[in-house]
Amino acid sequence: MGTHNDAVDLSLMDDVFREYEGQRGALIPILQKAQEKYGWLPPEVLNLIAKKLGIPVSKVFGVATFYAQFYLERRGRHILRLCDGTACHVRGTPILLTALEEHYQLEPGETTEDGELTVELVYCLGSCALAPVAVLDGEVLGRLRQNMLLRTLKKRIDLAKPA
């Protein structure tokens, strides 16, 4: 996967189109494969799929936005899901958010410029006893404090230059 500012490499889709050539109703599997390759569904790819399948962009967009599985915004290579359920909220999620904003200029829903990290705010991960809780790439991080979160991020993610 390229870095965030790279142009989308449309040639990645060649194999996908070959695999589904001539198949009816292949739009959803093609979108799934595309998301596997890019991590999200860039507009260029949606356009290309429409062109290759000979269907309108409006249809591709309508389908891609209907299903919860598809992301139409770029997500980072690493996903940090920060719980802002009540328990976590009162136990310091806002402070963690402030830390992320200070160090990575990230607000919830945003991705770092190098495309490494996306921060998402979720409502209750069901681990309130460990509040505040975050899930980094599927791994639960409990009882988080600012420096702990930043340390973990720094260690785990090869961010270009955390300030």
Binding site: G25, I28, P29, Q32, V63, F66, Y67, A68, F70
Partner: peptide
């Protein structure tokens, strides 16, 4: 095998068929 893409309503048979056909699962 056709893999769904995250829509509860596709458990309804006509929505499911729409989804197999690559449409919005309505």
């Amino acid at each position: 095998i056709k893999e769904g893409a995250g829509a509860f309503v596709c458990g309804e048979e006509t929505a499911l068929m729409n989804s197999i056909m690559g449409e919005r699962g309505q």
